[in-house]
């Protein structure tokens, strides 16, 4: 089973490293394929992505991609609600939490799909436009 855990972690990491929200994939991989309880899967995801995001943030900082003006106004309310929600899940059983997560994941997937298709179409049109000019 250890090998399966490492593979699942690596798949989540690859997607995360590409900046596409690996965590949202790591959690269902852990619950569906490894049979890990929902709360534990969420805890693993939270902890596992801390070191990775620290490294990524340092790199982004060097590339001057971090915009500080958004930080305080967004991060402070987010921090309060984040802790509140983390306390709230104690009152929800694993099966219910997993179901809620499923709805959230499907909605996010639909949004991501639509965005990706629109962007792919834009890139495609741009390419075709250039070819016509030639």
């Amino acid at each position: 089973m250890t090998a399966a855990y490492i593979i699942v972690g690596a798949v989540g990491g690859i997607i995360g490293g590409m900046g596409m929200g690996g965590g949202t994939l790591l959690i269902p991989l852990l619950t569906i394929f490894c049979g890990i309880e929902q709360h534990i899967a969420q805890s693993i995801n939270l902890i596992a992505f801390v070191p990775m995001s620290i490294v990524a943030i340092i790199i982004h900082c060097k590339n001057k991609l971090i915009k500080g003006e958004y930080f305080w106004w967004t991060a402070v309310p987010a921090l309060f609600l984040g802790v509140l929600a983390s306390l709230l899940i104690k009152n929800i059983n694993g099966a219910t939490l997993s179901k809620c997560f499923g709805f959230f994941l499907a909605a996010l997937g639909i949004y991501q799909f639509v965005t990706a298709v629109i962007e792919a179409k834009k890139a495609h049109d741009k390419k075709n436009g250039k070819e016509k000019k030639r």
């Binding site: 990491g13 790591l26 693993i44 990775m52």
Partner: peptide, 17 residues
């Protein structure tokens, strides 16, 4: 579990980047 999966995540993260 956290250490095992986390190790995979870090390795995968580098590969993904």
């Amino acid at each position: 579990l956290t250490l095992i999966v986390g190790g995979g995540v870090i390795a995968g993260g580098i590969a993904g980047a």
